[in-house]
């Protein structure tokens, strides 16, 4: 095993009686990488995370976290890994700082070090002024940030975040994602799970798409895009005028033109044809109102991937739609 791999799972399986929650999955997370476990609710993401932390038994397969076996050496794993559970909870009657102090004592930090770490961590997530406020008054976004502060305070090498952005408003989500990027810049490897594909796509280096307890796809968003969407470009145009469709179809590289609405066209091409398309519209004295290329999105990859596999369970598609 290379020293640059911090989490390695081979054939990881979890059965609950007859039901298979996680079915022979294998993946590896590199040092300093943000790895996303994505998929609908109930696809096995949380179970996978709990197995990585040694909080639930492994039915079959093997896991190594920083070279340790979570089932046999749970304390070594838990000392080095920070965990933010799905909808994290704190003791509402205690202040933010007291909650962190309790965790710090459980970890076993010395008193002087404890205070320093707690103050620094709260500062890093922007909760310094709320340190002595009771957590009962905190909003959901603040609790999530406090959860991240706990991981920072712990000085974890790996941060495992379960649905860190679920239930947050767009502003809080942006703030949280910024802190997650900050973790990466400090050399912390991040494993995060989410069913909100588009929000996490911006932070993840690589993703694994879960479906029914298996990893359906794995790689960077760009790689998955090429693999699933065929690497084509989709350009949307909105313009006033008539007869563009025929002209635009003649642009080299354009394989198809479809009408998507009044004055709206969509071009399928094997390269970025925006400049040529704009030139054509202007040459015909049309009034160009909109021109844009569709970015590769995980949503598109997800829906496309499961559309082309009609044998997949319907729940997966519903999940993808829900995620959108």
């Amino acid at each position: 095993m290379s020293t640059d791999v911090v989490i390695e799972a081979k054939g990881l399986t979890k059965n609950y009686g007859q039901a298979v929650a996680v079915d022979h999955i294998s993946f590896a997370v590199g040092r300093g990488e943000i790895f996303g476990l994505l998929g609908p609710n109930g696809a096995g993401k949380t179970t996978t995370i709990l197995m990585l932390l040694g909080l639930t038994d492994i039915s079959a397969g093997e896991v190594r976290v920083l070279g340790f076996d979570p089932a046999r050496e749970p304390l070594s794993v838990k000392r080095r890994v920070g965990y933010l559970p799905d909808t994290v909870g704190f003791y509402d009657g205690l202040t933010a700082a007291d909650n962190l102090r309790y965790t710090a004592r459980l970890i076993g930090f010395k008193r002087s070090e404890r205070e320093k770490r707690v103050t620094e961590a709260l500062d890093q997530v922007g909760l310094a002024e709320f340190a002595e406020k009771r957590v009962g008054t905190f909003s959901r976004g603040m609790r999530q940030r406090l959860g991240l502060a706990e991981i920072l305070m712990k000085g974890a090498q790996i941060a495992i975040l379960d649905e860190p952005t679920s239930g947050l408003d767009p502003h809080a989500t942006t703030e949280l994602l910024a802190i997650i990027r900050g973790l990466k810049s400090e050399g912390v490897s991040v494993l995060l799970s989410s069913h909100l594909l588009d929000r996490v796509q911006s932070v993840c280096d690589r993703v694994a798409l879960f479906s029914g307890g298996r990893i359906a796809l794995m790689g960077s968003v760009a790689e998955l895009g090429r693999e699933v969407l065929g690497g084509g470009y989709v350009v949307d145009i909105e313009a006033e005028g008539a007869g563009f469709a025929e002209r635009l179809a003649l642009i080299p590289g354009v394989s198809g033109v479809e009408k998507t609405g009044i004055g709206k066209l969509r071009l399928h091409a094997d390269r970025d044809v925006r400049s040529e398309a704009a030139a054509e519209v202007v040459a015909m004295h049309g009034r160009l109102k909109y021109l844009g290329v569709q970015e590769v999105s995980l949503d598109a990859i997800y829906s496309r991937y499961f559309e082309t596999r009609p044998d997949e369970e319907m729940t997966m598609k519903e999940g993808a739609r829900h995620a959108a």
């Binding site: 838990k78 920070g82 965990y83 933010l84 994290v88 909870g89 704190f90 003791y91 965790t103 959860g147």
Partner: peptide, 10 residues
């Protein structure tokens, strides 16, 4: 919802 967070400590 504090149980899993506490048990994730060593």
């Amino acid at each position: 919802r504090t149980l899993s967070r506490i048990l994730a400590q060593p």
